[in-house]
Design a protein around this nucleic acid. Structure first.
Length: 614
RNA sequence: GCCCUCGUAGCUCAGUAGGAUAGAGCACAGGUUUCCUAAACCUGGGGUCACAUGUUCGAAUCAUGUCGGGGGCGCCA
């Protein structure tokens, strides 16, 4: 039995894996060093302000270009937060001077440049704004939006991380989807990203599975699940878990079974390998169905051999202290609860394994940032882990961050995989697929069954990703099937639809024949407000990607893409390109094409594919 | 008991390194299709940003407190 994923057994193999990932990135095309339109504007404004103040140089990042609310004049408001502290001087001296200098720039034409309250609002002349945006998108195409804010950073992202032999249920989907989105985002921002599903493939549960297997594997109800490893082993696990509550003896047997595994007993190891491999194959299938790809399933077991030395090291450096046979790390200085590395029976804990994983990964992957996409209920665990890493100076200049995923509850209570009974990830996919498929059957009956199934599948994943990535990290939500099934309004399908319709128009009306550069200024200046809005929206994608990386969350992108979708749909209603004549027609085709490219690029980062038809 | 976190429209959520009249989707009421895809578009109603005090030229955003929901707290992972 083979899995699609490399699961290295040795440091050597991990190093080879890292090298192959690096090689892949080296070949990738990426517009490194390209400075986007808004960034260029900020740089200029910062330079002008530096000149006025004659003090410390300002950076582009000191300048904020905020969108102006509809009721005020201008497209962007210039704000310099740290200068605004001295409001009197800012309004009375600095802004008027800035306005004067900007006005004097010969290559920029402002249609609006006004002091409004505490802000300096401006609009670039329409023709300049449009040309600037469209030319940039045209030249970069599918790379438009990709940036350099995370250039040369090495980022390891741990997400999904299910336990072997247990099924992936809706509660696990959050970290899986958000992790994938974040990985895509960092990649888009220029980082080298290592994608790891940190399998829970070690510890007492392995022993529980083994004992449970020997007891229940031949029972008819369990046997009936034999074709579906995760269901099969989950059922065994749940049954064993129930039984051990009544019978503590079973618990002891499980611990002993795990001890035999740790000692490398042949039969125990063979069973473990079998379950792990079967689990990996099933995970491959589920991830594949979601268009998610990990670089490795490097899990807890890999770090096992380093545990003893690590605990000794922690003891020797007095970071950890013995407490009888147990080993404890006291973190009270940092205002944290102390934490257990080793239990009284000598077994190591999950915390200890995470300590090893943290520094071992630092060694092998040489990361600058390690992001743990894990449920919010583990916030304390990660605070403790990072505090320990700080004390041991494991990280050097690198940093670690926990991206908490809100607890997904069902009927108000936590979903427990131990008890079983939660809706499985695949069942959820099937439910959405069914809904999407019947809609597709109705809307494009002329396509083949296979084509319609492909589209329904793309819509299913779009619904899942969009729905999950819409929410900011850390908020717990009650699982609501209706929200995920709803493909209207603020949904993945809404955005896919906007693209499909745009592509349809470009297909039927044809691509623009007159090049952008040859379109007259007057024509640009006469552009309809709905199309102008799309241009303004498109300009923001590079900024939004930077913002998402800073916030360690894809949700700003999800909300931003919705505003593009709204602008496009509004445009479709207002302008019938087909009825226009050249060169006006060509201009609108350019605007539409570039906006669709922007939206598609954003969706790709959200792991959402756009069908040809729907 | 202690720690963390959240509280924004009927519901689900954005907006919080202080900045303009607090925004979306759903739901609700009404309208739009001989016309490139109506999974769409337009209009409307709906808010004491949990509450109180404070800091500030300016607070949904910061501080303190109160109330309420969720999570966690050395022998699960």
């Amino acid at each position: 039995m083979t899995t699609l994923l490399p699961t290295p057994q040795s440091e050597e193999e991990v190093k080879n894996l890292v090298a192959s990932i690096e090689a892949r990135y080296a070949e990738k095309k990426h517009p490194f060093g390209h400075q986007y339109a808004l960034e260029r504007l900020r740089t200029r404004i910062a330079a002008t302000l530096t000149d006025i103040l004659g003090e410390d140089p300002l950076l582009a990042s000191d300048v904020t270009l905020a969108a102006v609310p509809a009721q005020h004049i201008g497209d962007f408001a210039i704000q310099v937060p740290h200068l605004m502290k001295d409001m009197k001087r800012y309004r009375g001296e600095i802004l008027p001077q800035l306005k004067e200098r900007l006005q004097a720039q010969t290559d920029l034409t402002f249609s609006v440049l006004e002091l409004v309250g505490p802000f300096l609002n401006f609009s670039l002349a329409k023709h300049q704004l449009i040309a600037m945006a469209l030319e940039e998108i045209e030249s970069l195409g599918s790379q438009y939006g990709l940036g350099s804010s995370q250039r040369e950073k090495r980022v390891i992202i741990e997400y999904s991380s299910p336990n072997m032999g247990k099924s992936l249920h809706v509660g696990h989907l959050g970290t899986t989807l958000v992790g994938q989105g974040l990985a895509n985002l960092f990649e888009a921002a220029g980082a080298i990203v290592f994608r790891v599903s940190h399998l829970g493939d070690w510890g007492t549960p392995c022993g529980m599975l083994q004992v449970g297997y020997s007891l229940y594997a031949n029972e008819p109800e369990i046997q009936s699940l034999a074709g579906r490893p995760s269901k099969f082993y989950s059922a065994i696990y749940s049954k064993f878990n129930e039984a051990q509550k009544e019978n503590p003896e079973l618990r002891e047997q499980a611990k002993e079974a795990f001890a035999r595994l740790e000692q490398g007993e042949e039969a125990a190891l063979a069973f473990w390998k079998k379950v792990r491999a079967e689990s990996a194959v099933e995970l491959d299938r589920i991830y594949e169905g979601l268009s998610i790809h990990f670089d490795t399933y490097l899990g807890e077991a890999f770090y096992e051999p380093y545990l003893r030395n690590t605990i000794d090291e922690l003891l020797q450096s007095d970071v950890a202290t013995p407490d009888g046979p147990a080993v404890v790390v006291n973190l009270e200085d940092a205002g944290l609860k102390s934490v257990l590395l080793q239990k009284s029976d000598g077994a190591t804990t999950y915390f200890a394994r995470d300590v090893v994983a943290l520094y071992k990964r630092k060694e092998l992957f040489d990361y600058d940032l390690a992001a743990y996409i894990v449920g919010s209920e583990q916030t304390l665990h990660f605070r403790q882990l990072f505090e320990l890493a700080k004390r041991m100076r494991y990280l050097g200049k690198a940093s670690c961050v926990h991206v908490p995923i809100g607890l997904i509850t069902q009927k108000g209570s936590k979903i427990s995989s131990r008890a079983g009974g939660a809706l499985g990830a695949e069942e959820l996919q099937e439910a959405i697929f069914e809904r999407a498929k019947s809609q597709v059957d109705e809307s494009v009956p002329e396509l083949t069954e296979e084509e319609r199934a492909t589209i329904a599948h793309q819509l299913t994943n779009g619904a899942l990703f969009y729905n999950q990535l819409l929410t900011a990290p850390g908020k717990s939500t009650d699982f609501n099937l209706d929200n995920i099934l709803d493909m209207r309004g603020k949904s993945g399908a809404y955005l896919q639809y906007a693209c499909v319709r745009g592509r349809g128009i470009l297909r039927k009306v044809g691509n623009p024949e007159i090049p952008l550069g040859e379109i007259q200024e007057e024509l640009l200046n006469a552009l309809d407000e709905s199309a102008l809005q799309m241009v303004k929206d498109s300009l923001l994608l590079p900024d939004v990607i930077v913002q998402c990386c800073e916030q360690k969350s894809p949700h700003p992108l999800a909300h931003y893409l919705h505003t593009i979708g709204q602008s496009i749909n509004h445009f479709y209603q207002r302008i019938r390109i087909k009825e226009l004549k050249s060169p006006e027609k060509d201009l609108y085709l350019h605007v539409l094409e570039k906006t669709v490219i922007t939206l598609e690029n954003g969706l790709r980062i959200m792991n959402i594919e756009v069908p040809d038809r729907m």
